[in-house]
Amino acid sequence: MQNILIIGATSAIAEATARLYAADGANLYLMARNEDRLKIIAADLKIRGAASVATAGFEANDLDSHQNLIERAHKSLGSFDIVLIAHGTLGIQKVAESDIEETIRELQTNAMSTIALMTRLANMMEKQRQGTLAIISSVAGDRGRPSNYVYGTAKAAVTTFCEGLRARLCKSNVHLLTIKPGMVDSPMTAGMELPGILLAKPEQVAKAIVTAIKKKTDVLYTPWFWRFIMLGIIHMPTSVFKKLSL
């Protein structure tokens, strides 16, 4: 039976992933800021087969609270076989362009809080000498694009941090997975006009995450074709790229 901590557990992608582990009979520990919704999710996961489900309130930007929260989770589960970090916000780029506070807030929620969590979790997992740390970054971090470069910057920081941390944790037998979803049909993208064929379902992304954790994949592009889309975008000469409005 796997012991799994999910941070940002009310996220659509996280919930879909939790359902797969619940069906497998896992022990789940869920953290999220909306505790009413978290309660509903916990009851659902229990009925879907989770051996146990515990919950705790969590505010990503209250960095000082993290250590205590993680320790309680570790005590409750006994060990961390898998930790998934999923919280995030997709702010409005246009607003951030004229509002520094918004920019800082986006960086804070999407980069700083995640990096702070990873730092603390890494030390605990290093001692365990086992387990997987799975972090949801984004294809948006692969190259800054005019439509969302503030969010992209935060995700780039997370991706780079993961890269270094992976090489460190590898030596203590801890696996680190960087998850880079493309466009996913979740509340984060609700109301946006996105091309239907590129839009993945959270369930589809969740399946890919579970497989990647099992196979100890380093970097997951999901759905898979985003690896090739991003390859094209990364290798586009700047002289061309800057003229596009991607």
Binding site: I41, A43, I47
Partner: peptide, 19 residues
């Protein structure tokens, strides 16, 4: 679509409460 949670199940009577 997102109101898709099981709320409670009574395994003795078979009463299922769900969204």
């Amino acid at each position: 679509k997102r109101l898709n949670h099981f709320l409670e199940f009574d395994a003795t009577t078979g009463l299922l409460h769900c969204e």
